[in-house]
Design a protein around this nucleic acid. Structure first.
Lengths: 251, 251
DNA sequence: TGACTTTTGTTCAAATATCGCACAAAATGA
DNA sequence: TCATTTTGTGCGATATTTGAACAAAAGTCA
């Protein structure tokens, strides 16, 4: 790609949108300038452009995003076959086992939820399509990392900010790589309260007809409901069925 | 705002992202150029920029969005207090009445779901945060339109593509304005299979402490489950409670 | 309070990058 | 194969970015 095939202003604008996140609903020009590293004048122009287009609101001091910004993510969710295809299977699965079922894909060091069928929520975090979790300590993340070449998986793990969420959280790269090897052998991953106390989950890869892993499927359950060892016998068979049913359907 | 405070390249890029939607997962340069009205060279540069940044994938012929694009909408959902505040109330409400509960806001002629607690799905359409429906024929849309000045509501209705989804769908602007007047009087809206056969729903406005309507709350139920008249007595009391509980909490 | 310092927002003209046309090349399809 | 459509590229005209300078607001301390 040539130098002139890149629109700097567009790229900068996208960085400005991403600056709004996690507990930062209202930002001043200077905030955005600092977060993005853009010049204050440029940040201001990006923000005013967003406001002019209705993607942001401006009260003279603070900018905040408007719901119109959801159009951008919606363009993906409604246009991509994966979420639409897996949703009914998640609904059935979730109904059958009485726990929440989700599907996700990998984006950098994080997993992104692309579809979800929730039963009454047990986690403190609220997950929905578009939500993100660090891959290294989520069951679907382990499954997706295990599907990558070793070197790539290790580089993602090392690039992750490995904060111990609970006393169970594994953070050592070598320990995590061993874990991935196990996941690869078994064909599933079980997470026991590494993300949040009281939450266990199990995940399997979703492959397409050509055998490529395109997403992961999981079931999360309160720790009180099933011991770590029971997760496999309770949930894995039903998940295997979904896995098999989706294989010929996925692109 | 001055002319030079607007970044054309950014605005064009956003139009390109929005070109991907509803059954258009894969677009060529020419497709995008036609959909957006942008010059081919410009569309190409926007697409290559998206690809370079990892928001899109390019196989030499087709572009498609990647899950990274969800970061943009997620910036809103996780940064805005509304979805986070209402979610637990939706969960409780949904649990209590055994039907799906949702919250939405208005964006142009459409309502946008910002939070949802789903019970087993009865609708053919799959709704999730970020999903959109035409305001004129959705219960939450009626409530949100009723909260606007009459002239504004009418102009939105007239700007809507009023396709009869079922034989029940009201499409006449005057009939719809009458309906809005009723909704305003009653303080709630009931939709009887105007969006989809077999689906009834009831919505109430969510006001903040200053009395401004900031969102709408609804419950959807299969038509088999409750007659149109029963919707009110079955669901309205519980919805009123949520409405009252949220009033002091919302900004 | 009032003077001083720091932070924040805005403006401007020079330096730089983008836009869109026109043309060439490549792919598609009859 | 030829006609048609689609894609890639060079270039002048046009629009944007930059960074410093200025103005305004907020914070600080005696």
């Amino acid at each position: 790609m040539r130098e002139t095939d890149f629109i700097g202003g567009f790229a900068k604008g996208l960085r400005v949108i991403e600056a709004f996140g996690e507990a930062k609903p209202r930002l001043t020009i200077t905030d955005v300038s600092k977060d993005t590293g853009l010049d204050r004048a440029t940040a201001r122009r990006c923000l005013l452009t967003l406001a002019e287009l209705g993607y942001a609101a401006y009260d003279g001091k603070f900018f905040e995003l408007t719901p119109k910004i959801l159009r951008l993510g919606h363009a993906y969710l409604s246009a991509t076959p994966l979420p639409v295809l897996v949703q009914p299977y998640l609904d059935q699965l979730s109904e059958k086992v009485g726990q929440s079922a989700s599907a996700s894909v990998l984006d950098g060091t994080e997993i992104v939820y692309v579809a979800r069928a929730a039963q009454k929520r047990v986690m403190s975090i609220n997950l929905m399509p578009g939500s993100r979790l660090p891959a290294y300590c989520a069951s679907m993340g382990r499954v997706l990392l295990a599907a990558l070449p070793e070197a790539e998986a290790r580089s993602i793990i090392e690039a992750s900010e490995r904060r111990p969420n609970t006393s169970f959280t594994k953070t050592e790269p070598d320990a995590l790589m061993d874990e991935l090897a196990r996941v690869r052998r078994q064909g599933y991953a079980v997470i026991d309260q590494e993300l949040e106390l009281g939450l266990r989950s199990i995940a399997v890869p979703l492959e397409n007809a050509r055998g490529r892993v395109v997403a992961a499927l999981n079931i999360g359950a309160p720790a009180a409901h099933a011991a770590a060892d029971d997760m496999v016998e309770h949930y894995l068979p039903a998940m295997r069925e979904v896995q098999a049913a989706l294989r010929p359907v996925l692109a």
